[in-house]
Amino acid sequence: MLASYVGKCSKKVKNVVERGAVKKFAEAIGDLHPIYWEEEAGKNSRYQTNIAPPTFPRVFDYGVIEGLNLPAKGLIHGEQSFHYDRPLLVGEELFCYAKVESYDEKQSSMGNIGRLVITSYGEDVLGNIIFTSTATIILTEAVRKAMMV
């Protein structure tokens, strides 16, 4: 059933790399380097502005992949990766969307597990991809059964 979503995308959503959100995020991961929040430090840096931590894209809205209703509970985050063309700049607008990359099932020590790979994209106003973020989500058999009800 999940396999039928492979290749499906959400519609792009405009996100802003918000100054306050970046500071709050940096604080939450214990990484309050001035480059993330102090305006002067940003201006004097090679970026000429503040930047966001590499795992910041967790906060963006990627829209909804139609029909894909993953449960709020029971999912296991197995793997995560980010790829960047450059760091994200505070204040910039990014157009974000997500795509179901792949789905497979295999036997493991946890029983028959499903592996759903979702790639999220962030594009600048010109349509250049600035970052991609790929999550591998593990769905146990019990979670998949609950989804069918």
């Binding site: 214990g30 990484d31 380097h33 970026y47 930047i51 795992t55 197995g78 793997e79 990766s81």
Partner: peptide, 25 residues
């Protein structure tokens, strides 16, 4: 945890940037 781990590289933001970052939980 992944967010915390990246801060090992924050002191070097003037020298370069994290181009790829992948982990297994």
């Amino acid at each position: 945890t992944m967010g915390n781990l990246a801060k090992l590289f924050t002191p070097y933001v003037e020298q370069g940037f994290i181009q790829d970052y992948s982990v297994r939980f």
